[in-house]
Nucleic acid binder design. Structure first.
Length: 316
DNA sequence: AACTAGGCT
DNA sequence: GTATAAGCCTAGTTG
């Protein structure tokens, strides 16, 4: 209803700002440890059923970034004097895992060629060359790639985009024709989950789905089918990140670096490093993350650095 | 405790 | 006819 009456936008603005104030601006300074002068989160290794870790008291995995006002909260996370914050994240790790596990030749080829996966997807589905892909085409392709890892339907695609249901149905159909390996993989996962009552990640982390076995409530079945599709993808990404995190401290030490890990945000690690160690640290961390658990395609990473977590520049 | 809302990947 | 996109944590309200 945004724009239909002035009060709507006022309500939404109030909600945004009161969320930022109560959850972050008031809470974070109060969470500061008087001994260290820092905010210390707690991580739970079994925080999520997928294998992800969770963060609480305070949660530092949901620090704002999306809006301008929100980003100002993130600007408050700063490195100590003489140091910078270094953030390294995996690029499209979940889609790379899909390509690997589904062994889909078209998707693997796109990643091998180092292409923008959403552009490649758009080109395939719309039947045009990569350089003829418009912003709108890419946006639609991004929505379906994104929805894919959550087990989304054509209905869900239509709802999340400006596509009509008929257009979305057609889009999904073409998508699976262009990526038959992905289609086959999704069908196999559904079947496997129903047959075994569980699915596993690449590193054998298991998640059970009781409702897929016994008598079946269709709603519950659909929900668990989506969860069963997402679990190996999200869970494998979590496994790989955990392996990287195990390797990083010794890799840094071996390189004679003082930098250390501060935070993990699912596909991102934030480190604090002395300014003169920035480039070397980025190299070591990127290398360790990329090779934590090699897949049939490269795992790429992006490194950014800056004085604060909200104002970082991409490193080359 | 249940529910709504909203922050993140 | 019904429902429809995964995983979390925190704050505020209500009873």
């Amino acid at each position: 209803m945004r724009g239909k009456h002035p009060v709507v936008d006022m309500i939404l603005e109030n909600r945004e700002l009161s969320k930022l104030k109560s959850t972050y601006i008031d809470a974070l300074p109060a969470a500061m440890d008087s001994q260290t002068g820092r905010v210390h989160t707690s991580y739970s290794q079994i925080g999520a059923v997928t294998g992800r870790i969770s963060s609480s008291n305070p949660n530092l995995q949901n620090i704002p970034i999306r809006t301008e006002e929100g980003r100002r909260v993130r600007n408050g996370f700063i490195a100590e004097k003489g140091s910078v914050l270094l953030s390294v994240d995996y690029s499209q790790i979940e889609l790379r895992i899909v390509a690997h596990m589904a062994k889909d030749e078209s998707m693997l080829a796109a990643f091998r060629a180092g292409e923008d996966i959403h552009v490649t997807t758009a080109a395939a589905v719309y039947g045009v060359e990569n350089d003829a892909v418009t912003k709108e085409m890419r946006r639609h392709a991004k929505a379906i790639n994104f929805g894919l890892i959550y087990g989304m339907s054509a209905f869900g695609l239509a709802r999340s985009t400006d596509l009509t249901l008929a257009e979305a149905e057609n889009f999904v159909k073409t998508y699976f024709e262009k990526f038959p390996g992905v289609k086959k993989y999704l069908d196999e996962i559904r079947q496997l989950a129903g047959q075994q009552g569980y699915v596993e990640t690449l590193l054998n982390r298991r998640r059970y789905f009781p409702a897929l076995q016994g008598k079946i409530n269709p709603q519950m079945k659909n929900r668990e089918e989506r969860e069963a599709i997402n679990a190996p993808i999200q869970g494998t990404a979590a496994d790989i990140m955990k392996i990287a995190m195990l390797k990083i401290p010794s890799a840094l030490k071996a390189a004679g670096l003082k930098s250390r890990m501060l935070l993990q945000v699912h596909d991102e690690l934030v480190l604090e490093c002395p300014k003169d160690e920035m480039q070397k640290t980025a190299q070591v961390v990127q290398e360790t993350m990329a090779n934590a658990y090699p897949l049939s395609i490269p795992l790429e990473t992006e490194a950014k650095a800056g004085r604060s977590w909200g104002e970082m520049q991409v490193l080359k």
